[in-house]
Each structure stands twice: as structure tokens, then as C-alpha cells.
């Protein structure tokens, strides 16, 4: 697992950096990155299907790490009182005065909290959100039913939001 992780992580970081450096579209599309990393790693001839899901799970974790790194870096740039806080909205109903970087970090923390209570559920979230895996894939990987995946995701979503709201509130104040 360690080996896979460090390779996946290294691969994703490299890809992410490559995206940064290119003159093309500037958005980091994590799903595309994970897929690219997978294609590269699957070129080893002996990889079997079982490992694909396993890899995706690992890659999801790695992707999460990449984004957390990213978030930390972008947050730490805002040193001193010089910078304006940006207002970011995803939708009309929701207005937050905290930057997205903080959001990702809060999510990371919340996810760790979740993992403490229910490791598999955290896995579901990580695979779905960071790894872009389909519900069917997650079900197959974790050997549970798809409806279980749906339910676990739904609950986790609410719970994580609650956690994040608490921690973000603390940050702003």
C-alpha cells in the first residue's frame, strides 16, 4: 500500500505541476489527473483488475493529499494583512467569506474525524470525492451494496458539513 501510495502521490504531484506549467487550460481536473496517473501505472504488464480499484482508492487518497498541500500553500501565501479575503460562492444560497483553501483543509480535518468513527465510511467519501469513483466501483471495491454506498455518502455529507461549519466558524473568529 505504501509503495502504491508514494508512486501515486508522486505521479499526481508531477501531473499537477505539469498542468500548472503548461500554457493550456489552467484548471486542475483531479478526475482527469487520477485517470492519467492510472493509465501510466497500468502500463506495468502484470496489473490485474483487482488492483485497478485498489489503485483508484490509493489515488483518491493521494489526490486528497495533493489538494491539501495545495490548499496549505495557497493559504500560507496570504501572510500579513495585505490581502483581501475573497468572497467565493458556489451557489446563491450559500455565501461564505472564507477562501476555498480553508474549505479543503476543513474537509480534510473533518474527514480524519470521520475516519476515527467509521473508517469505511471515510473511504467512501474519499473515493467518491477525491477519486471520482463511481458508486458501482466503490461498492465493488469495498464489497458492499450500492445502496449502502449511497446511504453512507448521504449521511457523511451531512455530518461533514456540520463538522466543517463548526471549524470554519472558529477560524474566522
Amino acid at each position: 500500500m505504501d509503495w502504491l501510495f508514494s508512486h501515486a502521490y508522486g505521479e499526481l504531484r508531477r501531473l499537477a505541476a505539469a498542468v500548472n506549467r503548461s500554457n493550456g487550460p489552467r484548471t486542475l481536473n483531479p478526475t482527469a489527473l487520477v485517470n492519467e496517473a492510472w493509465i501510466k501505472m497500468a502500463s506495468a504488464p502484470d496489473l490485474r483488475f483487482q488492483d485497478l480499484l485498489h489503485f483508484k482508492r490509493v489515488a483518491a487518497r493521494a489526490m486528497r493529499q495533493v489538494l491539501v498541500d495545495y490548499a496549505r500553500r495557497s493559504l500560507s501565501q496570504k501572510r500579513g494583512g495585505d490581502h483581501l479575503l475573497l468572497v467565493v460562492t458556489f451557489s446563491e444560497e450559500m455565501a461564505s467569506t472564507v477562501s476555498v483553501g480553508a474549505d479543503v483543509l476543513a474537509l480534510d480535518d473533518a474527514l480524519n474525524e470521520l475516519a476515527r468513527r467509521d473508517a469505511r465510511q471515510a473511504q467512501v467519501v474519499e473515493s467518491r470525492f477525491f477519486g471520482g469513483m463511481e458508486v458501482s466501483e466503490i461498492a465493488a471495491m469495498l464489497q458492499i451494496s450500492e445502496s449502502t454506498v449511497h446511504r453512507e455518502w448521504r449521511f457523511a455529507r451531512a455530518w461533514l458539513s456540520s463538522q466543517m461549519r463548526t471549524s470554519l466558524r472558529t477560524t474566522v473568529e
Binding site: 484548471t27 486542475l28 478526475t31 489538494l67 495545495y70 458556489f90 476555498v100 470525492f129 461533514l160
Partner: peptide, 12 residues
């Protein structure tokens, strides 16, 4: 739920 409903690429 702002982040979780979004896609990652939006965030990035």
C-alpha cells in the same frame, strides 16, 4: 453543502 456537492475541478 458547498464543497461536497461541487466537483473537485471547480475547487481546483
Amino acid at each position: 453543502a458547498p464543497i461536497l456537492d461541487g466537483s473537485l475541478s471547480q475547487i481546483a
